[in-house]
Design a protein around this nucleic acid. Structure first.
Lengths: 242, 242
DNA sequence: CGAGGGTTTGATGATAGTCAAAGTGAGTGG
DNA sequence: CCACTCACTTTGACTATCATCAAACCCTCG
């Protein structure tokens, strides 16, 4: 019951770039299977040499790093279409762990086929580099956030980016999207404590800017939120799908 | 008076990977010239579509992003051998600004030749992706630092990484290396205020762990420093040179 | 010798962390 | 169907880390 790349439900969303027939076919051959995991399942571990790569097909997860004293930094939230494990592939070791937050389905690729895939088609190689670059770009933005913005501002920024990502994927309906994370996850992503995160969210809610409860996010006033966050509102750009 | 890739002074250091003759020759053809800049010169601007790429040949600089309110986040410190402008190339726009801290000499490449270069040799394309991946890896580590470590710990981490990078490049002599940045730069890199940065450095100095003055860094006790920073001591790995 | 960039220091206050406890709601088992 | 548990959220009280302000200091340079 493996999804055929030709009929990939993701590619139908306008968010992902179209693929030439031969790219599609090569990707199909690259794909070695599918993996379904339950919430909380670790998918990749920091420092491990994973033999496989994934693309998130359904469900959400997160990337994180942990410090020796147990502190955790959430590096990124994983949405459908995200490519997982490039670091293990290029650097031989994952720089962060990956874990499923909801039920997830992942397309599986064998690392041993990666170089062939990379070589087989310049466009695809370029796509992979593009993904690495956009990730670097995003991490840079996250860095400014954690380093320079204060909590309210950080929170606003995070919600805006999450919402935009959701919107691009067509997850937003009636101004609402599923956001199945815990406050602890957001807190760990922004480098603030759970308690402080909670109080900060409460503040945004009190100001009628947004609501996030029961795993659903609603944004009431994007303009005002953007002002709080000090960001330009811009659509995420279309991205390649591996 | 342009340095020939064949005799590139960087490649002689063991830190950079060897290059096959044809790679070397393609790189040479890719290189369109050299640029010498004085301290303080902006090299790339956030948001700009730079027509050129660079490799730092000599000198040091920094990458940073600025917020509307003027706050600055230093994303990374640029050392000889660093590749500059990949983001502009892949994403069409720089995600951060780049500025020279010391006098610098940069190898210049034309963006219009980039795709050809990328396509011409799979190994080189791979190298570029590798660089993007290692950068992503490093930014992840920075993220944990800013998000989870407290000031002393952050500082210790930063000095360790800078020192290791310097050591790999052969800049360390008698346990000392040049580190021509201001305390403000370090502060902006770690997301703390100048005053606090200063006091934190003073603390490390008082504990006899290191000294950083007059643009020179000395580390007295790497072990203890690593303990403060909560990091493993590991050599930076050899990297490709573009 | 004065100017200016960078560093250092002290005083004060705000932002955010920690601790502790209560509230909420979904899921489970008797 | 009703406790009961467990994971998560919410709130209050207290504290620490860190930011801001201001002034002095140090050094190089013209």
């Amino acid at each position: 019951m493996v999804t055929d790349c030709k009929h990939c439900p993701l590619r139908r969303r306008g968010f992902f770039e179209d693929m030439a027939p031969d790219e599609l076919e090569k990707t199909q051959r690259f794909k070695s299977g599918e993996l379904a995991v339950t919430p909380g399942t670790p998918i990749l571990m920091e420092g491990s040499k994973a033999p496989q790569l994934y693309t998130a097909l359904r469900g959400m997860g997160l990337r994180y790093k942990t410090l020796e004293d147990g502190r955790r930094q959430v590096v990124n939230f994983i949405f459908p279409g995200d490519f997982i494990g490039l670091q293990a592939c290029m650097l031989d070791e994952m720089g962060h762990s990956v874990e499923a937050t909801t039920h997830m389905t992942l397309c599986v690729f064998d690392r041993s086929d990666f170089y062939d895939f990379f070589r087989s088609n310049t466009k695809r190689a370029f796509d992979i580099t593009w993904l690495a670059a956009i990730e670097e770009h995003f991490l840079g933005e996250t860095l400014v956030t954690i380093g320079q913005r204060e909590a309210v501002s950080s929170m606003a920024w995070a919600f805006i980016r999450l919402y935009q990502r959701g919107a691009a994927l067509g997850l937003v309906q009636n101004g609402q999207m599923p956001l199945p994370y815990r406050q602890q996850d957001l807190a760990d992503a922004l480098g603030i404590s759970l308690v402080h995160a909670n109080k900060t969210i409460a503040k945004l809610r009190a100001h009628q800017l947004l609501n996030w409860s029961a795993g659903r996010l609603t944004i009431f006033d994007m303009e005002a939120l953007a002002k709080v966050a000090q960001v330009e509102i811009e659509e995420p750009r279309r991205r390649p799908l591996i």
